[in-house]
Design a protein around this nucleic acid. Structure first.
Length: 307
DNA sequence: CACTTGACCTGTCCGC
DNA sequence: TGCGGACAGGTCAAGT
């Protein structure tokens, strides 16, 4: 599921593939996937050149020379897959068909399939013949054109909390933002995008396990020592996940169609019934904040008022 | 006002 | 094998 590390992995891929390309045509199947009017599309998207690819929380921002940006949320099953030749054909070692198809040399876990397919919601054609596919099985994701200069002023972006991996995001700031929700379960707070940007179910469970905090614990019952631990573990886990190309449960792939391997390193997520890597107790799955939640009942003691 | 639950969707898996 | 239903989870609207 695209959380911060997955979206960042897509961003890194797109940032290496898209800038400089010029949009020739756009197709989309579903108004909700891409609700801009045809006239706005014609004025601000067609013939525009891509200048930058940015990320804020779980949202991708593809900046265009028209002064507009294509803003994209992948939600749970969204993919942005680029098909075409990579910009610099420096390494000329392509011998496999897959390498050619996905723009230059891919490991065997590439998304080897033909696009578009039935999950394809939108296709952007570039003047050089390459294409960007927006696939979304469950149709929760969206993309829309917004004036670049106004993006920071839009409600959706104004509400997003600090980026946990920013260099100047301190442990004190982390504790301060958590304390704005002192009576809520810590997991619900971590998932709240207005408190902290980019954390979703996988990394909430993993970081709470690493810090030995029960996900149902109200924030104000957690010791400062443990909150510091949580800050450090969360950042380390997010960074490691980006290194591993994110987590692929079933759908997620990066801009080149490649799956992420972080779930191979997950200690509790989807590990119910398996022994805890620290103490051997069986990992359990419960519901917290309306989400499937994985934890070690021994390492992560429930707060007194039960779960 | 703080907090929780349901709706949005489709594909998959599980039990009968 | 087929079928119904629970489940998956990011976010917002609606509920308590």
């Amino acid at each position: 599921m695209p959380e911060l590390p997955e979206v960042e992995t897509v961003r890194i891929g797109l940032a290496s593939l898209l800038p400089g390309r010029i949009i020739k045509d756009v197709w989309h199947d579903w108004p909700k996937s891409f609700p801009n009017s045809p006239s706005d599309v014609a004025r601000f998207l067609l013939r525009a050149k891509i200048t930058h690819v940015r990320r804020r929380g779980k949202v991708l921002i593809i900046e265009l020379s028209s002064g507009y940006s294509l803003v994209i949320h992948l939600k749970m099953t969204g993919q942005l897959v680029f098909v075409g030749k990579a910009a610099e054909p420096r390494a000329k070692s392509s011998k496999t068909g897959a390498g050619e198809k996905f723009g230059g040399g891919h490991p065997s876990d590439s998304l080897l399939r033909n696009l578009p397919d039935k999950s394809t919601r939108a296709v952007i054609d570039f003047t050089d013949g390459s294409k960007l596919f927006f696939n979304d099985q469950r149709k929760f994701g969206w993309m829309r054109l917004l004036p670049t200069s106004q993006i920071p002023e839009i409600d959706f972006f104004k509400k997003i909390g600090p980026e946990p991996l920013d260099d100047d995001f301190t442990v004190q700031e982390f504790i301060d933002v958590l304390k704005t929700r002192k009576n809520s379960a810590i997991k619900a707070v971590l998932l709240d995008q207005s408190v902290l940007a980019g954390v979703g179910n996988i990394y909430a469970d993993e970081s709470l396990f690493a810090a030995k905090i029960h996900p149902s614990s109200p924030v104000n019952t957690i010791s400062p020592t443990k909150l510091v631990k949580l800050y450090n573990e969360l950042r380390a886990i997010l960074k490691l996940a980006i290194e591993k190309g994110g987590s692929t449960d079933r759908n997620y792939v990066d801009a080149k169609g490649k799956k992420g391997s972080y779930l191979n390193f997950a200690k509790v997520f989807r590990q119910q019934g398996q022994p805890c890597p620290r103490c051997g107790t069986r990992i359990i799955k419960i519901r917290v904040a309306g989400r499937g939640t994985h934890l070690c009942p021994r390492c992560q003691k429930a707060p007194k008022g039960l779960k």
